[in-house]
């Protein structure tokens, strides 16, 4: 018998305990699981480079500036002065071509981690996040979003 006596254990305290546990877990459960993507504002908004005579020993990494600009119909990949446009396929990014370019950058600048991400005014927030995600997936973890 569950209620008492006999050789069977009394299950009522178990039910009490489980009820309390379930109430606690239901109340504290995070039903909406979200991720976040941190942005490096300092790098994206860094001012103009200081004069040459103030700069301490030349460093290849400091000279290189990599940026990605998202337009509504194309993507501009800028590697210092070298520019490359990648046209969108319909309304989607040409992910294959972009990935190849990002991999080439990765191979060329193995110690560099940061890329500045610019956007045109007509672009949506969803496109910005897609490009951010693509950069992180292509091993460019330090993405600075330019707020200008």
């Amino acid at each position: 018998m569950a209620g008492g006596g006999g050789s069977e254990p009394n299950l009522t305290p178990f039910i009490d305990l489980f009820s309390v546990l379930i109430c606690f877990l239901l109340m504290t459960a995070a039903w909406i699981q979200l991720d976040s993507m941190p942005s490096s504002i300092e790098k994206a908004t860094a001012g103009p480079t200081p004069p040459v005579d103030m700069v301490t020993p030349p460093n290849d990494e400091k000279k290189i500036s990599l940026s990605v600009t998202v337009y509504s119909d194309k993507i501009l990949l800028k590697e210092n002065d070298r520019e490359l446009f990648v046209q969108n396929i319909g309304s989607q990014f040409d992910k294959e071509k972009l990935k190849l370019e990002f991999e080439r950058w990765r191979m060329a600048y193995q110690d560099k981690k940061d890329v500045v991400l610019n956007t045109d005014a007509l672009v949506t927030y969803g496109d910005l996040i897609k490009m951010y995600d693509l950069l992180v997936a292509s091993d460019w973890p330090d993405v600075g979003i330019n707020p200008q």
Partner: peptide, 14 residues
């Protein structure tokens, strides 16, 4: 940024 909040995290769906 003007108010000194530079650690901006964009929320996304996994």
């Amino acid at each position: 940024i003007e108010e000194g909040w530079t650690g901006i995290n964009f929320l996304v769906q996994p």
